[in-house]
Design a protein around this nucleic acid. Structure first.
Lengths: 103, 103
DNA sequence: CCCTCATTTAAGTAAATACGTATATACTTC
DNA sequence: GAAGTATATACGTATTTACTTAAATGAGGG
C-alpha cells in the first residue's frame, strides 16, 4: 500500500485537484481537460498517468479518444485513508462521548 | 483560506506526517521530536515552522524548551476540507440513499 | 498505404524543497 | 556576565518535479 505522504503528494498539485473536480462531473478526454484547464494536453496526459498509476482514474478508449473517469471506490479509499491521518482521535467522536479527552 | 493543494503539499512529507502522529499522543519539544524521528533539530524546526504557519500546530514556551502541540481544531478543519475534495459525491451518502447515483 | 487526429513519451529546463552545516538568538544557572 | 542549553535561521546542495516542445505511437478514413 502507498504511503500516506505519497497520496498527499499526488494531490498536492493544483491541476490534479482540478482534474479530479472535472472528472467528478463527467468522464472527459485528454484534450477536453487540457482545454478546460488551460495547459497543454501533454501536461494533462502526464498528470493522468500519475493519477492512473495511483488507481484514482480509469481510462476507456473510444476511437481517437481516451476517456478518463474517476475511480470512485479508489477515491473513497483515499478519503478514508487521509481521514485517519487528520483525525486527532478526539474531535470526530463516533457515537460515544466516551473518548472525548481532548486538549 | 489556503488552497487544498497547499494543504496536501504540507502533508506530502513523511517527516511531517510522523510529527503529526507523534503530537497526537502528547506535546513535545523540538529536540524530542528530532530524536524520535532521527533527523536534525534544524530539519524538525523547519517542518514545525511550516506546520505552524498553516495553523496545524501551536507552540508554548517553557524555560529552554518550546513545546509543540497539535491544534486539533485546525486539524479537524483540515480533515473536513480534504474530505470534500476526496468525496465523489455518491459513495459517502449520509443517511439517505437518495443520492446514490454512482458509476 | 498515407494522412490526420488524439494521445503518449522523451528530453530539457526552471523552480521548489528537504535536509545538513554553521551560526545566531533566547533562556537559565552559576 | 560567562557557560551551557534549546531553538531558529541563513545558506548551500542535491533531488524532485511540473511544464513545454518535439518526436513517436496508435487508430480511422480516404
Amino acid at each position: 500500500m502507498k504511503k500516506a505522504s505519497e497520496l498527499f503528494k499526488l494531490l498536492s498539485v493544483d491541476k490534479r485537484i482540478e482534474i479530479i473536480e472535472l472528472l467528478k462531473k463527467k468522464e472527459m478526454c485528454v484534450n477536453g481537460i487540457a482545454g478546460a484547464l488551460g495547459v497543454t494536453q501533454s501536461a494533462i496526459s502526464q498528470h493522468l498517468r500519475i493519477l492512473k498509476s495511483a488507481g484514482l482514474v480509469n481510462d476507456r478508449k473510444d476511437g481517437y479518444y481516451v476517456y478518463y473517469s474517476l475511480d470512485k471506490d479508489a477515491l473513497e479509499a483515499c478519503r478514508q485513508r487521509l481521514n485517519r491521518i487528520c483525525a486527532c482521535g478526539c474531535l470526530e467522536g463516533g457515537g460515544k462521548t466516551a473518548k472525548s479527552r481532548c486538549g
